[in-house]
Design a protein around this nucleic acid. Sequence first.
RNA 1: GGGCCUAUAGUUCAGUGGUAGAAUGCCGGUUUCCAAAACCGUUGACCGAGGUUCGAAUCCUCGUGGGCCCG
Length: 302
Amino acid sequence: MSKPKVITIVGPTASGKTALSITLATQFSGEVISADSRQVYRGMDLGTGKVTKDEMAGIPHHLLDIADPATDTYTGADFMRDASAAITDITNRGRLPIIAGGTFFYLDLLRGLRTSAPVPPNETLRAELETKSTAELSSLLTERDERRAATIDHANRRRLIRALEIVDSIGSVPETTITASPYDMLVLGIDIPIEILNERIHRRIIDRINQSMIEEIANLHASGVSYERMTNFGLEYRSIASYLQGNLTKEAMIEELAAKTRQFAKRQRLWLKNDPSIIWLPFPVDTNEAVRYVENFVTTLT
RNA sequence: GGGCCUAUAGUUCAGUGGUAGAAUGCCGGUUUCCAAAACCGUUGACCGAGGUUCGAAUCCUCGUGGGCCCG
């Protein structure tokens, strides 16, 4: 039995992943799976750059609007489960799964490049550990799981707490093993020069604000999403929440958001730079070139 | 025209006589379920000229730039 063929489109935010995914889906009777940790939430549209109904052009999209931002915490493990199911479903119907999104951590989990422990979040334990100092968490982990303690970042409370959560549940953090990918995957990356990207980021912020992004976020708050939660969502949600609370002028908010988005894009590029399996397409993407790669990929027997 | 205030990293601000700090940005990284999160590292400044002093970002004078008040 051969592995399911999957197309994946990666690239930093604002590089044009959405448009390319729809072009390819149209061309190859595909369906799009979003790999985006924020677009899974309902009501978070303009702020996440979620594809609109019109833009979808009739192409089915998966893993959008599947969680409630006020009450759910969607995680990488959820994505693995949901994306796997979507790929199976799409493949079984004889269509081509096309993953597009900017949460590369999720994609790495899906591709078996990183392992995750089968331990769901334990909010009670997390709250308890949260009261401890970073030094205490650090020595606690060293005591309980020497191997994980040897590689973990001892200044990163969030990681320390997660590691201790795993230790508490199954005794130790499993060793990282790179498993063979369950999919036959073609990964196309959009390579966009940083200067062009930064211009696009700034313009996109202005455009979205003109399209009532601030109102969207105010509504989200009115419907029960706390400012604290929004701060954790980051970028648009964090900066605009700050603005709505009167901590920033509109101009300062735009400036902060642009800077944070640039930083995010840089981190994304860095992540992708370390992945040797990506086939890079220079921006602006030559659609014909992308189509040729996919054509070649889907017709090759494995 | 007169008076008062002010000038420190790209930016916002600490530092009032004894080797110039923070936050943030910039640049470079990390990533074992909150990953748009979380975390780490590097870089970088006393407006200019005099003076007082063993020693000046700090005190004095002048200049220059900025702000406020009076006219």
